[in-house]
Simulated scan of single mutants.
Amino acid sequence: MKVFKLGSLALAAALLAAPISAQDLVAPKVEPENASPFSFAESKKKAERSAKMAEDGSGSKVIGGELAANGAWPWQVGLMIAGQPVSPNAHFCGGSLVLDQWVLTAAHCIHMQDRDGSYFDLHPSQLTILVGTNKIAPGQGDNVPVAGIFRYPNYNPDGWDGDVALIKLARRPNANYRTIKVPDQDFGDVLDQAGVPTVVTGWGLVNGGKHPDRMYQAEIQMLSRDMCNESMMKARAQVAARPFVEAASIFRLNDSEMEGAWAELVRRAPMPLTENMICSGSFEGGKTSCQGDSGGPLVVPLDDGSYIQAGIVSWGLSNAATKSCAEDAIFSAYTKVSKFLPWLEQTISQN
């Protein structure tokens, strides 16, 4: 782990003088209905925010994305709130068909916190899976009921490590679709190399904050996990510097003590991206996933013209002012699918 070798006086001068990033790198305290994609959509706040953003022109998008062609990405599915009309406001997450009746998605899409602080998984009756369409609208694709939900048992919502889940459909979809392959551990490591081209797809927010009824895509690339971690740690250090220096002054730490305390604080801080995550984006920024894309696939094109799913949309940087994704972010974090292949195979075979 890198320790920022700044003496306390240099720390105070350099970090306190630096502008605080617009990207909110410290997870805020949020109400339970805002804490998960399902709760946010179910509470009607998704529709309210969409209307507000449309009025004031704020918002975000499948960053840097473009409209996907009809029939493209036929493994992409949408997680929908059961009992609501099929519409963008009923959609809360993405997913991918890895078998005819099995959907791969993110654990945070189906696992959420109640008001008393306890966590629970959605019941299969609370959602449906929209299959075989690029457009979210009545009569499009097949809205399939769910038979079972299976969350990776070691998922940690504090940092999103192990952010993977499986959903079993009650039946095979009656729509045009294809399944997507996933890599084993060795090939997953081959794909997890800086510069490898990737594509992220979904129905996440678009310009003006509207929730689109059509699927978007963005072509990005794998980035170095170490580079993404270093970028995050430096930004977090910048945010943490002011309260740290104030606390050190209150406790009357001298220059040497302040330097030692800061070095120990940084040493103990966990890396934002674990080995179970991959980093993908673009060096110029402005191309990444956004709200509503969670759980969807990050795919890699292969030489034979096919695709393989390397990642699952997990988390990204947010903008403190809009509470939406940061439009200038250079990357988002994705669950590394190959790390969880044994669990995927065992879960499917036993259910």
Rank of each mutant, 00 (worst) to 15 (best):
Y152D: 04
Y307A: 01
K52N: 12
G295T: 07
G305R: 08
A68E: 03
I278Q: 01
P74W: 14
G188N: 07
N319T: 06
V131K: 13
Y152C: 04
A54T: 09
L25V: 15
Y307R: 09
S314N: 05
K5G: 10
D304R: 12
V239L: 01
A310T: 01
Q23G: 12
A175G: 10
K29I: 02
G65E: 01
T274H: 07
A54E: 07
P183S: 06
G159K: 02
D116C: 00
P157Q: 11
D56F: 07
E264K: 14
N207R: 02
A10Q: 13
K339W: 03
A35L: 10
S39V: 06
S282D: 11
F244G: 02
S87C: 13
Q221F: 12
A269P: 05
L11G: 11
L265C: 06
D116Q: 06
Q23C: 12
L317F: 04
F244P: 08
G65M: 01
I312P: 11
A235I: 05
A14Q: 12
K287I: 15
I348K: 03
W203F: 15
F150L: 06
G209P: 14
Y155N: 08
A269H: 06
I63L: 06
P28C: 11
Q185R: 05
S314H: 04
V190P: 00
Q291W: 02
L67G: 04
H111Q: 10
F251V: 00
A241W: 00
V299E: 02
Y216P: 02
L273C: 09
S280R: 09
S318R: 04
D303N: 07
M1P: 12
G64W: 01
D328E: 09
F92C: 07
D121E: 14
A69K: 12
G57D: 04
Q23T: 15
L302T: 07
I149N: 11
W75D: 00
Q309N: 06
A175L: 09
Y119R: 13
S306M: 09
A175E: 10
T201A: 13
S256A: 13
A14N: 13
A333M: 06
C109I: 07
E275M: 06
A261M: 13
Q23K: 04
A82I: 10
S224G: 14
E33N: 10
F340Q: 08
W75M: 10
P243H: 03
M271T: 11
A90S: 15
V144G: 10
R151Y: 00
N156G: 09
W75S: 06
N154D: 15
W102T: 01
V206P: 01
L302N: 02
